[in-house]
């Protein structure tokens, strides 16, 4: 754990029932950094994010958020500590309106927090389409709009660490570009971002650093550029033909 990391994960293990999915995973994230987590399906990326957000109790290891031990803390408390997750599949409240979804995003904040209004304006500025859709049920939005709403909803909790699970999944290239532009502008405002991506090239191109996960462990770590150059990574995750290790 480096002294300036906002999120430090030390030898985390977790799983479902008796099935261990994560083994001794150590990851850290510095303030204002965007870190990508790549790896094949089933490598444990989603499990790691779920454990970090509190949806899954780890079976071993420690998680530190801004120097405080938050291991095993419930999600409704973690979001108050500044950690927000944009979950796999987005998990929007489909029959509720866009505005209601955004207000729910701010539920963790005090009732009379004046800055909720400011953050609502900020999210509207980042994703103007959400303003046009404000009174529509979330389920009626397009896939891209839903992803923007999911990110916007997470931002409404005013997080310092944003965890994102596959934000590009199933979206058109233009929408993906929009979302990554927003993520980079959020990073430049000081938000720390840990990003799980299936599209390794996309993730590594935008991220400061990356980790490669394989069967529940961290197999490789490096800067985005280093990993993009790495032969194994190129071979296995960047679309070159799979070899016997694939």
């Amino acid at each position: 754990m480096t002294s300036d990391s906002i999120l430090a994960v030390e030898r985390l293990s977790a799983g479902y029932g008796r099935v261990a999915v994560l083994r001794d995973v150590s990851v850290d994230l510095a303030a204002g950094e965007m870190v990508a987590l790549i790896g094949a399906n089933g490598a444990g990326k989603t499990t790691l994010l779920r454990s970090l957000a509190g949806l899954l109790k780890p079976s071993g290891g420690r998680v530190w958020l801004e120097g405080a031990d938050v291991t095993g803390m419930a999600p409704e408390r973690l979001v108050r500590q500044g950690m927000a997750l944009v979950p796999e599949g987005r998990m929007l409240f489909g029959p509720m309106t866009v505005t209601e979804n955004l207000l729910l995003g701010a539920h963790s904040r005090p009732r009379r927090d004046e800055s909720v209004r400011t953050d609502m304006d900020r999210v509207s500025a980042l994703f103007p389409v959400l303003v046009e859709r404000s009174s529509q049920p979330a389920a009626t939005l397009s896939g891209g709009e839903q992803q923007m709403l999911a990110v916007g909803r997470a931002l409404m909790s005013s997080p310092r660490v944003l965890l994102l699970d596959e934000p590009s999944l199933g979206l058109a290239p233009k929408v993906i570009a929009d979302i990554f532009r927003v993520l980079k502008s959020l990073r430049s405002e000081g938000l720390s971002i840990l990003l799980v991506e299936q599209d390794a090239r996309l993730a590594l191109r935008h991220a400061d650093r990356g980790y490669v996960m394989r069967t529940g462990e961290i197999a490789l770590a490096g800067t985005g550029a280093q990993l993009l150059e790495n032969d194994d990574v190129r071979h296995i995750y960047l679309g070159a033909r799979h070899d016997s290790r694939g």
């Binding site: 999600p75 408390r77 979001v79 729910l104 963790s108 904040r109």
Partner: peptide, 13 residues
């Protein structure tokens, strides 16, 4: 709609 999603919003389900 979803307990998990609600908890991520900080709702004490």
């Amino acid at each position: 709609l979803s307990h998990d999603a609600a908890r991520l919003m900080g709702i004490d389900t």
